[in-house]
Simulated scan of single mutants.
Amino acid sequence: MTPASPLFLRRVLGLDAAASGAVGLLLTFGAGPLAEALRLDPGFTRPAGLFLIGWALAVAALALQPRPARPLVMAVIAVNVLWTIESVLTLALGWLEPNALGVAFVIAQAAAVAAFAGLQLFALKPARRLV
């Protein structure tokens, strides 16, 4: 499986969809407990969770394509980059004031999303010969 392999790209998209869906469910249906444990406002986490559930379905649909369309994959990468930037800005600008565990949660999910964006971009690049 090479970076330009459609299978590699589909797997990365599938993992992104699964992770987005899991976090979306957690943020949507665990908003109350998260508010207590992480000091994250349920008025923020529930809508973010609902967005992620829809997002996960869209990315999963793309992952199921035999050859995901490059412009659609680029759109996924762009949204992932924007999500990462917004997560960091949310903390930096004080839009949320989570406790230390909440800060760790926001940073960890932002890092995971950034990693998916990087892997997706890598998967789009043609394989290079090492000779």
Results as ranks from 00 to 15, higher is better:
G14Y: 00
G43H: 06
L57K: 03
F51V: 08
A58V: 11
N80Y: 07
V79G: 02
A4Q: 12
G102C: 13
V23R: 02
G49H: 04
V12A: 15
F29M: 05
L96N: 03
R10K: 11
Q120F: 00
D16N: 14
G14F: 00
F8C: 04
D41H: 08
M74T: 09
A78S: 12
P33V: 10
V88C: 07
V79R: 01
L34R: 04
L121N: 06
A110G: 15
P66V: 07
R70G: 01
V81M: 07
R67L: 09
L26I: 10
A92H: 00
Q109D: 00
R46N: 05
A112W: 00
L119M: 12
A108L: 14
L93Y: 01
L7V: 10
G30L: 06
V131Y: 12
L130G: 09
L62T: 08
L64T: 06
V76N: 00
G54E: 06
V23T: 14
V113H: 01
T90R: 05
A56I: 02
F105Y: 15
D16A: 14
S20Q: 02
P6S: 08
A31E: 02
A48G: 07
P98T: 11
E97Y: 03
L91K: 11
G54F: 13
R67G: 01
S87V: 11
A60F: 15
R11A: 04
A92M: 13
V106N: 14
A110H: 05
L89Y: 04
G118M: 07
V79M: 02
T84M: 11
L93G: 00
F44P: 01
F8R: 13
P126E: 12
P66S: 13
T2W: 08
A58F: 05
L52Y: 04
G32H: 03
L25T: 05
G21F: 03
V76K: 01
V73I: 03
